[in-house]
């Protein structure tokens, strides 16, 4: 659904995993941008009905980009930069912010 605009010769690539699959991203990408560019369409499942959600606002407002990173839930993918070796998973159900 999304792709990179330009060839971006100078940029450094970063690799991480999403649901166990390897993903290549570009240094400086937010995690949400990297996942969207990699074709991911579901970031979390809601605690109420289990519906799939994906980023809506990309600016830290909607929290529909919440994922689990290295076992820690409630990470806002649109506000975090990708880092080498991150293990990212779909957030299933977790509720609240604590």
């Amino acid at each position: 659904m999304f792709e990179r605009l330009t060839a971006q010769g100078k940029s450094v690539s970063v690799s991480f995993t999403f649901e166990g699959e390897a993903v290549e991203a570009r240094e400086g990408d937010t995690l949400a941008a990297a996942l969207l560019a990699a074709g991911v369409t579901s970031f979390r499942e809601t605690p109420v009905s289990g519906a799939a959600r994906a980023p809506y606002c990309m600016m830290g407002v909607c929290f529909d980009c919440l994922v689990e990173i290295d076992g820690v839930p409630n990470r806002q993918a649109c506000m975090l930069l990708v880092a080498e070796g991150m293990a990212v998973r779909i957030q299933r159900g977790a509720r609240g912010l604590g």
Partner: peptide, 26 residues
């Protein structure tokens, strides 16, 4: 239907463009 994946704000599309050079293929 505004909660469906694939529905974003215009600002979100602009943010993807500005901050990551990412644009929609569709």
């Amino acid at each position: 239907g505004w909660t469906l994946p694939g529905v974003m704000t215009a600002g979100a599309l602009q943010i993807l463009l500005k901050s990551a050079g990412v644009k929609a293929t569709e």
